[in-house]
């Protein structure tokens, strides 16, 4: 991979920090964002020890849309510019707050509005040969009772990414929809079906591999593509009756 510098948005997420470590191990420069300052500092220090040069660390709250230009300025100052970005922002819904408008808005904002907005900023600034990878979920492929809002937001994100891909194609920027199956992080901790989960390290490895040469929509692990193909083709009445 062109060594270059990569932006990891949400580098404090479990998958994000594994992605950052992998990129660092490959000799890439890094710009990291996170909203929890203590965690961001911990991740940045870790990366600095691993690759011998400190990354740029920018505190960023996803819903503080006004702060994006400052991030863009910071990235603009990187010599050689950005070779790509990975966006890990994501937030599950709280089943106990289904009728709370603020909670609903927050899930949509973190999973859809914020990535869409930030990607517009980034797409305007990246050059040919660069890559934008966005972590989405197989939950966006089919509506399910327990993840209906999260799934809807991720589905919206997937459609947005397909559109952005078309927009960026002519300019030589690859846009990747990374649909993750279950990864062993706090989002899946304690849920049934843990045996399906892959480690965040192997998820990160696959993310970085697709950053290098992926196209379009990537499923991680790859076999989810076929599972979801089968599940999408089931009539809704049948799908609903599947064991969870």
């Amino acid at each position: 991979m062109s060594r270059g510098t990569f932006l990891v948005v949400g580098a404090t997420s479990t998958i994000g920090r594994c992605v950052a470590r992998r990129l660092a191990a490959e000799g890439c420069g890094l710009c990291l964002t996170g909203r929890d300052p203590e965690e961001l500092a911990a991740v940045a220090a870790d990366i600095a020890v691993r690759c011998g040069r400190p990354p740029l660390a920018v505190p960023l709250e996803a819903r503080d849309f006004g702060s994006y230009p400052a991030l863009m300025d910071a990235c603009g100052a990187i010599p050689g510019g950005l070779a790509g970005a990975v966006i890990t922002w994501g937030m599950p819904e709280d089943p106990l707050a289904r009728t709370d408008p603020a909670a609903t808005a927050q899930v949509v904002e973190v999973n859809l509005t914020a990535p869409a907005l930030l990607l517009e900023w980034l797409a305007d600034r990246l050059g040919p040969g660069s890559c934008l990878a966005v972590l989405s979920s197989v939950a966006g492929d089919r509506g399910r009772a327990d993840t209906r809002l999260y799934g809807a937001a991720k589905a919206g994100l997937n459609v947005f990414l397909a559109g952005l891909r078309a927009h960026c194609d002519r300019r030589g920027i690859r846009v990747l929809t990374v649909k993750l199956g279950r990864v062993d992080t706090r989002l899946s901790f304690g849920l049934a079906g843990a045996f399906l989960a892959i480690s965040p390290e192997s998820a990160a490895k696959a993310v970085v591999r697709s950053l290098r040469r992926g196209r379009g929509t990537v499923y991680i692990p790859g076999w989810w593509r076929w599972i979801m193909l089968a599940l999408r083709s089931l009539p809704e009445g049948l799908f609903r009756r599947l064991p969870r």
Partner: peptide
């Protein structure tokens, strides 16, 4: 999961 390196001094090997 709390497994980050914090500081390393190559002149002393202190991690």
């Amino acid at each position: 999961r709390l497994n980050r390196f914090r500081e390393f001094d190559p002149s002393t090997g202190l991690l």
